[in-house]
Amino acid sequence: MSYSPDQLADLIAEMVGKLDTVIDSGLLGATYDIAFRFMSSPDPSEVVDFCVVATAFTLKAGMPGSVGFVHTVPVANYVLTLRVGGSLSPTTGTAVGTVTISPAGVFTFATAGSGDTIIPAGSLIKLVAPATIDVGISGLAFTIKA
């Protein structure tokens, strides 16, 4: 198959346009680490920590590669909710995942759906404590690998 110079120029322009779209989306396969932490047991349903992301990224199903540390383990499973969007109110935005810390100190990261979730640039991401207080948990830190 051969192309005229004009056809080649059009084909190249089309491909560059598609590549620009992929690059601008922030989804070119780069990883994005987001760290959350707190020192003492939060109040029920408190927004414990939050951030605004500068670059769009994909939150992979199950958040593979995410890691956590807890200094003092909870009495029972402690489930924190990750919410995207809305305000700093703990009930606004969309729940996109959970982080569960067991009494043995094991972290389980889960996404809200079975697939990946795209988080747009400029999104507010907040970490919301469970509705039930656990006075035992303290010194928690985890990083989501997206």
Rank of each mutant, 00 (worst) to 15 (best):
S4I: 10
S4H: 07
A9E: 10
A9M: 07
D10Q: 12
D10R: 15
A13N: 11
E14Y: 11
E14L: 15
G17A: 01
T21L: 14
T21G: 04
D24L: 09
S25H: 12
L28G: 12
Y32S: 15
Y32R: 14
Y32W: 08
D33N: 14
D33T: 04
D33P: 14
F36G: 05
F38G: 11
M39H: 11
S41E: 09
P42Y: 02
P44Y: 08
C51E: 10
C51F: 13
A54L: 12
A54T: 12
A56F: 01
A56I: 06
F57I: 02
F57H: 08
T58R: 14
K60N: 00
G62D: 01
G62Y: 05
P64F: 08
P64G: 02
P64Y: 06
G65F: 08
G65A: 03
G65T: 05
S66D: 05
S66T: 08
V67D: 11
V67Y: 03
F69S: 07
V70P: 01
V70Y: 03
V70D: 04
P74G: 10
P74F: 02
V75H: 13
Y78K: 09
V79P: 00
V79F: 00
L80N: 03
L82M: 11
L82T: 02
L82H: 02
R83W: 06
V84N: 04
V84H: 06
V84D: 01
G85W: 06
G86T: 08
S87K: 12
S89W: 05
S89C: 09
P90K: 05
T91C: 05
T92G: 08
G93K: 00
A95W: 05
V96Q: 00
V96Y: 05
V96W: 13
G97A: 01
T98D: 03
V99E: 05
T100K: 12
T108D: 12
T111H: 04
T111C: 03
A112W: 05
G113P: 03
S114G: 15
I118V: 15
A121F: 02
G122V: 01
L124F: 07
L124A: 08
K126E: 06
V128W: 03
V128Y: 00
A129E: 00
I133D: 09
G136N: 14
G139D: 14
L140K: 03
K145Q: 13
